[in-house]
Design a protein around this nucleic acid. Structure first.
Lengths: 154, 154
DNA sequence: TACTGATAGTCAGCATACTGAGCAATATCG
DNA sequence: CGATATTGCTCAGTATGCTGACTATCAGTA
């Protein structure tokens, strides 16, 4: 009789559930209101100024229909800008605002703290091994979800 | 400059994303329409006949507000039954139907196949180690989410 | 250049997850 | 026994994620 705890899928769900809760708690303690998804998007926009939504989605493996709402909320909070591209009138170019840059800078300690807390039950070596195995499993399964990771076309 | 791929939280999200996609694809190929969440709930109801919703939620670490909708859908599909408890008029007792039992039995190969596919990039030893590390990290962080795992009161 | 196919983005709809609030019923304790 | 606290469940609201469909635009080709 296979228990739920023998199912990698169930363990994945539980670990992610804890990871999100820890992230939100640390970030809120630091005085900010940003979800893990919003954080990843904002950090990626900062690292790739002027990128379009599909490219952003590919870099962080979000579905393109999900990213629309995420960006809506970043724009509404004044952390990012969305404007029409001059080269391709279908596309929107994304950029981080000064406010977004400030937020990213100030939020970093909380984000790093969250990453430590979600691995708190593991030794440093075990934590590194967990991340290695996750990366390896993810690489092998990358194309199995609707929103695979895609390198920047540049 | 920390990359997203150095964040355990981001890796957790990606792995779970792939796990869900693989599960849904395998189950659909087998001719069924059941989500990972619905499957876990149904299997746990079968293993604990007559349990109430809070106990079920604790066993699989779902939020109690989430489980309401999940059970709604199981009941609507004719796979589970929800009826008032005679001992505690606040509580609802849950049971699996014959149809639910049949579905669980027929769906098992697809579920097992899905668990294999989501670990396909790892050796057997690595897969086991990944699961061990996930269980350990989850145990240490259990109380950090709103819906921690809880053993059956019985 | 006109046609065809592909691409960027959005939208409606559904299923998790969570926050916070509320109702009904039970448990506890003075 | 009666006041209070707790518990089981539900609901409204928000944020991912996904499927599938649609519009606008672009790219390639006959």
């Amino acid at each position: 009789m296979k228990d739920n705890n023998d199912m990698p899928g169930h363990l994945a769900r539980r670990f992610q559930q804890i990871a999100v809760a820890v992230f939100l708690a640390e970030v809120e303690d630091a005085g900010f209101d940003l979800t893990p998804v919003q954080y990843a998007a904002l950090a990626t926009i900062k690292a790739n100024p002027g990128l379009d939504q599909v490219t952003l989605a590919g870099l962080i493996a979000y579905d393109r229909t999900t990213i629309t709402g995420v960006i809506d909320r970043l724009v509404q909070k004044g952390l990012a800008e969305r404007r029409a591209s001059s080269r391709d009138r279908r596309a929107r170019e994304l950029d981080i605002t000064d406010e977004g840059r400030r937020t990213l800078r100030k939020i970093t300690p909380a984000v790093e703290s969250a990453q430590r807390i979600m691995l708190q039950g593991l030794s440093a070596k075990e934590g590194a091994e967990l991340m290695r195995l996750l990366r390896k499993a993810i690489a092998a399964g990358n194309d199995l979800s609707r929103a695979p990771m895609r390198d920047s076309p540049a």
